[in-house]
Design a protein around this nucleic acid. Structure first.
Lengths: 348, 348
DNA sequence: CTGAAAGCGCTAACAC
DNA sequence: GTGTTAGCGCTTTCAG
C-alpha cells in the first residue's frame, strides 16, 4: 500500500493509473460482471498500489443507501444486552453490514437523540430495545422509511419485535417457588412503562392465581432493572414486619437479582436457607454466587433473529409486522432447592 | 412535523417554501450570523413545516468532516470498559459529536475491520483500547489523518494515550499482600502482548524485589482477562503441590478475579481465611462477593480525558503525542484483611 | 464492453 | 445580506 500524506485517493486517481474511466473502476469494485478481464486486472492493481478505499459517504449519497445498522440498547452495563450484541454483529457482518452501537441508558432523551442520529445518518435499519413502551418515539425513522425491529421489549407502534415469552417465564419461576414450599412470594419488579416488566408481573400474578393465593400488593416492589434499585427494592421487602415478610423472592432481571443478593447479605440472609430465590436472565458472569435459579433467555438467538428480520425489511419486505416470541426456560439451581417435603412440614 | 411518505425533503424544498436560496437555508442552519431576521424566520418556519433534517452524508461529503467519534473497546462484557464509555459519550455529546461503539472482543481481526470502517466512514477521530500492543495496526487511520487516542492500553505507534499507572497500582497491591503476611504471592496475569498485562507483571516483580523475595516462575500464570481464563489460571496455582502453593493471589483484572473466586469456591477455599486476595479494577457490580481488595481506576475520567484530547487533535492540534497517566488507588478490604501479627506468627 | 455526463444534497466562493 | 455557481466522490443511465 502506498504511504502518502492524507487520503484523497479518489476513484479518478485509480482510473488514471489504470488508464480506464471512473465508471469502469466503479464497475469492478461493485462486482459488475461485464468488464474485460484485462481491464479488471489493471484496476485491481491500481487500487492496490494506491491503497484506494471508496468513500462511503459519497457512495451512500449517490445510492441513497448505507450499509450500517444502528443497535440502540437500553443498558450497556447489563450482560444480557452485551451478549445479544454478538448475535446482531455476526449476522450483520455476514451480510456486509456494520453495526454501530449506542447506549440509551434507559433514558428517553438519550434514546431520542440516537434515533435522530440514525435518521440523519440514513442508517439502513435500527434494532432497538426501547426505554419505554409508550413514550419511545420512532416517528422520525418511520418518516425516513428506515425499518425498525425492537428486541427484548415491545412498543405501542406497529413494528417487528423479537423477545421471549416473559409472562410464561415469570410464571414458571413463581410456580416453581410455590411448589418448593413458598407461601409468600415477593417480586422485585421492573419499572413501569417497560413491557418486560409488565409481562413478568403478569406471569407472577398468574402463578399466584393458579395456586389460589391472593395477591398481596405489599409483596410487589419496583426497581429500575439496575443493581442499586434492586438492592433498595429487596431491602424494603426484607424489612417488612415478620408476619408480612416473604419466604421467597423473584427478581425480575439479573442486575436486580444481584442487588437482592446484596440486600440479603447485608442482613445476614442466605438462599435457600432463609429465603427461596429465583431470577431472570443468564448470570454466568456471577458464577461464584450461590448457584441461582434463573429463567434463561436465548440472547444470541434474539440478536440473530432480530437482525435477520431487519435485513429482510431492508431488502424491501413490506408484509405485516411480525412478533417473534421465543421460549425462556427455567433452570432450577441451589438458590431455590429445598426438598418440598421437608419444607412443607416446617410450614405446617 | 409534516407526516409524509419517504423523507426526500431537501434543502431546495425548504428554500422553495421559504422563498430564499438554498445557500440562505444552509446559512441559517449553520448559525451563520449574517442573515436578515426576516428571512431567518421564514426558513425556520419552513424547516419546521417540512420536518426537514439535513442529510449528514451530503454535508460530510462537502465539508470533508464528520461529527462522529469511533470508540473501539476490547471487551464489551467488561464493566470497566462500559463505565468508561459514559465518560466518552458525555464529553463528545457536549461538543456535538456522536459516538459509535464497537467491540473488538480482543480479536485482532475484528479490531482491524472496525478500524477499516472508521477510516471508510471518515470518522472525525477514534478512541481505541487496542487488542495488542505490537500487532494492532492503525496505519489506515494515520493514512486518512484521522486522530487516534488509545485508552487503558498503549501501542507501539506514536499516538496519544490515557491510562493509569499500572506498574505502581500492581506494586501497591502486591506490597500490601506481602505486608499482610503473605510469603508466596501468585499472580493471575493478563495475555502477552497487552501493555496493561506487562505493566502489572512488572509491578508485581518490583514489589517482590523490594521485599527481597525471589521470583518463582511457577507462581505466574496467564489468563485472557476473562472469567474462564481466570478460573483456569487460578486453578493451576491452587492445584500446585503443597510446598509450592501460594498463600496469596493477585488477579490482574476484574473478570479474572471472578474466575479466581470461582476456582477457590470449587475447592472450598475462602479469602482471607485460606488465601489473601487482591485484584484490579472496580467491581461494585459484584458487591455480594466477599468485600474485595482492589486497585481501582478512575474509569469515567479516563474516558473524559481521552475524548478531550481527541477533540483537541480533531481541532488541529499537532503537538507531540501525549501520554496521560492517572493514579490507580489501592482499596484494602476484607479479602486481604488479616492482622499482620497473627498471620506472621502462624508463618514462623 | 466502455466512456461521457449527470446528479445524489450540501456548503463555500464568488458575485452582486 | 443574498443568490448563483461549482463541486465534494461516487454510481448510473445513455451512447457508442
Amino acid at each position: 500500500m502506498e504511504v502518502g500524506v492524507g487520503s484523497r485517493v479518489t476513484i479518478r486517481d485509480v482510473a488514471a493509473i489504470a488508464e480506464v474511466s471512473p465508471a469502469t473502476v466503479s464497475r469492478v469494485l461493485n462486482a459488475d460482471e461485464r468488464v474485460a478481464p484485462e481491464l479488471r486486472m489493471r484496476v485491481l492493481a491500481a487500487v492496490e498500489r494506491l491503497g484506494y478505499r471508496p468513500n462511503s459517504q459519497a457512495r451512500s449519497l449517490r445510492t441513497q443507501a448505507t450499509r450500517v445498522i444502528g443497535l440502540i440498547i437500553s443498558d450497556i452495563q447489563n450482560p444480557f444486552f452485551t451478549s445479544l450484541v454478538r448475535g446482531v454483529e455476526d449476522v450483520a457482518q455476514a451480510s456486509g453490514y456494520s453495526v454501530v452501537l449506542a447506549n440509551s441508558d434507559e433514558d428517553l432523551g438519550k434514546e431520542q437523540q440516537y434515533l435522530r442520529v440514525a435518521a440523519a445518518e440514513q442508517m439502513a435499519g435500527v434494532i432497538l430495545s426501547p426505554a419505554s413502551s409508550s413514550r419511545t418515539r420512532i416517528g422520525e425513522l418511520v418518516h425516513e422509511e428506515i425499518p425498525v425491529v425492537t428486541i427484548d421489549r415491545r412498543i405501542a407502534a406497529d413494528v417487528d419485535s423479537v423477545a421471549v415469552d416473559n409472562v410464561a417465564g415469570a410464571r414458571q419461576a413463581v410456580e416453581h417457588l410455590l411448589k418448593t414450599g413458598a407461601t409468600r412470594v415477593g417480586i422485585i419488579a421492573g419499572p413501569a412503562d417497560v413491557s418486560t416488566a409488565a409481562d413478568r408481573i403478569e406471569g407472577y400474578h398468574a402463578a399466584l392465581r393458579d395456586a389460589g393465593i391472593a395477591v398481596d400488593p405489599a409483596l410487589l416492589v419496583r426497581g429500575d432493572f439496575r443493581i442499586d434499585g434492586g438492592r433498595r427494592a429487596a431491602g424494603r421487602l426484607l424489612d417488612l414486619p415478620a408476619h408480612q415478610r416473604p419466604d421467597a423472592l423473584f427478581a425480575a432481571n439479573n442486575l436486580m437479582l444481584i442487588g437482592t443478593l446484596d440486600a440479603m447479605a447485608e442482613r445476614g440472609l442466605t438462599a435457600p436457607a432463609d429465603l427461596l430465590l429465583a431470577g431472570f436472565d443468564e448470570m454466568s458472569w456471577a458464577g461464584f454466587a450461590p448457584p441461582l435459579t434463573l429463567v434463561e433467555q436465548p440472547t444470541y438467538e434474539i440478536g440473530r433473529l432480530a437482525t435477520e428480520m431487519l435485513l429482510r425489511r431492508i431488502s424491501g419486505d413490506t408484509s405485516a409486522a411480525e412478533h417473534i416470541v421465543l421460549d425462556a426456560t427455567l433452570k432450577v439451581r441451589a438458590s431455590s432447592d429445598v426438598r418440598p417435603a421437608v419444607r412443607a412440614v416446617s410450614e405446617l
